[in-house]
Design a binder for these strands. Sequence first.
DNA 1: CTGTTAGCGCATTCAA
DNA 2: TTGAATGCGCTAACAG
Lengths: 347, 347
Amino acid sequence: MVESQVSTAAEAGDSRRGNPRIQDVARRAGVAIGTVSNVLNNPDLVSEQTRAKVEVAIAELGFVRNSAARALAARRTDTVGLVLTDIANSLFVDIARGADSGTARGRLQLLLANSDSDEAKQNSYLELFDQARVAGIILAPMDRPLEATLAVHSHGRPLVLVNAPTAEPRLCNVIVNEELGGYLAASHLLDQGARRLAYLAGYPDLHAITGRLDGVRRAVAGAGASLRVVEAPNLKIGSGRALGQQILQSDGIDGVVCPSDPLAIGVIQAATDLGIRVPEELLVVGYDDDHFASESAIPVSTVSQPGRRMGELAVELLLEEISQPADHLHQTVTLDPRLIPRRSSLR
Amino acid sequence: MVESQVSTAAEAGDSRRGNPRIQDVARRAGVAIGTVSNVLNNPDLVSEQTRAKVEVAIAELGFVRNSAARALAARRTDTVGLVLTDIANSLFVDIARGADSGTARGRLQLLLANSDSDEAKQNSYLELFDQARVAGIILAPMDRPLEATLAVHSHGRPLVLVNAPTAEPRLCNVIVNEELGGYLAASHLLDQGARRLAYLAGYPDLHAITGRLDGVRRAVAGAGASLRVVEAPNLKIGSGRALGQQILQSDGIDGVVCPSDPLAIGVIQAATDLGIRVPEELLVVGYDDDHFASESAIPVSTVSQPGRRMGELAVELLLEEISQPADHLHQTVTLDPRLIPRRSSLR
DNA sequence: CTGTTAGCGCATTCAA
DNA sequence: TTGAATGCGCTAACAG
């Protein structure tokens, strides 16, 4: 099963004791140590000739800057840390992409850490970045108290939240209006003629899930329709199918709002199995605009969240806080989700 | 659209000029600087009482270790860098998970960087990690020459490859047998009675795609069946549907091997649209075991790659190289993929 | 077990 | 423009 093909050991570079230092470069180029530092950090201050000599020496020696020494001496860093709750979730991937383009614009480097929905890991990565004296931290936190986070921030590390459950007045926070998302989804189904809605509340303790439910309730109340709320054990297809089969058998449900796209796909499958036609007899809407939602057999209507924009905005806010640590105004930016109607909800 | 709710500025921690240093802690605790260092790094060498005093001082001051200074003085780091080609790809996410559990076991921290299929970014992150003097680097490289990578490695940075296109004798490499994957997929369809196969070669210049094709060819040749190879512009559902419609119209194709699950789903949709029943009249197999493949209307057979294991193994090899830089034997570990038969290919 | 000291490699003065 | 000196905050080695 495991075929191992071995080869000879390392034969290069290891003869040197440690890496070449800036001083080695200086000696080799026949210049002073400060000059080498200048070609690295302020090339304009160095004559063309000298610079060339130094660059040759750097190349010949294979010199690589030691960022620890650099950070220590310069008392700053140009790295931003992003701590993600779940690297497998498309929203967070989008946020990372947005953050990446944001930091690139600011000549910063972005390092990722995946907390994997583990609070201890989350805090451990926060501390790692704090110890590394990163320029700032962006955190997509779990639905839990933010003590450790506030601690990191309170001793001076710039930090902004993304997709945090509650507005935290002492921190910047980029969130999306969950209530509105639920409202958009439910209103749309009602507009299309549904009258007996169901909401599949996966992970009912997540702020996103309950926030969306509030919006669904508001829409339903305004339309004088009925709503049944069912708790789903998770947000996957399997749950959607199981719950779909359960509620579609009897209730006369004609519209289902799902807080995830897999859930919606599961419901559609259950309906198909039961001979209930989508969208003719049942309207379904999902959430997140997962890549496969638009391309399943019956393209799934969905509520899309502006993940990239969230990441970009988080970086902007972070840069603000970095540049004006004193009189920086913390703010919560709330972005609106957007309904994308597709066949599963259009009559 | 964007509602901004502002609050007051930071009111804590900023009065201090810079972060407290280990010396401040020592003074406050009334001990020597080395003692503080010891409670941080060798708690066993310190008496219970002293340790308590120091810990109180640390807490009161909000002291956070400066890892740059630490790294500089200790001449080492306990961080491993993982450079990923595509954070949105489930294989790489699995690799990251595996690497994470591997590093956790070794008391190392894992930092991620997403090259986003951009060679310049990939090299820039390699350099970032190199400058940071990380303990080692794991790289899931793009299908390109590895000059920059070899340069980083050759001046002494431990580095192992994951999922690299070709075995690189100077480096450890954890790969999966692509040829075998294609062979397993095609053989399975042939076993189930298919005789006229098609292979949807998305991104035909990727080693993974062509490697699998080789395996498909081998299986087909052994069975005296026919094979049609079609180039797909990418690995998404849309391509699968488009190509499916194209080849299923006329050719009498009765089995399709797809190098991705979305492609397979697209083909199944095309078949359904054309009134061709799956699996009765057409057998389909995908690749990667994407989470939704098992749960679509017709569960998709697939070839699963051992991503987690790849990540774990990469860390193991890296740790070996770190601990014995001199007489370390580079090796290429080839893992076997596994066929997961589901309804789309079972008669 | 505790305290002292000498660098780690670099950026950054300030003179020349 | 260039070069010599100072110290960033910490670890490790060693003497007490």
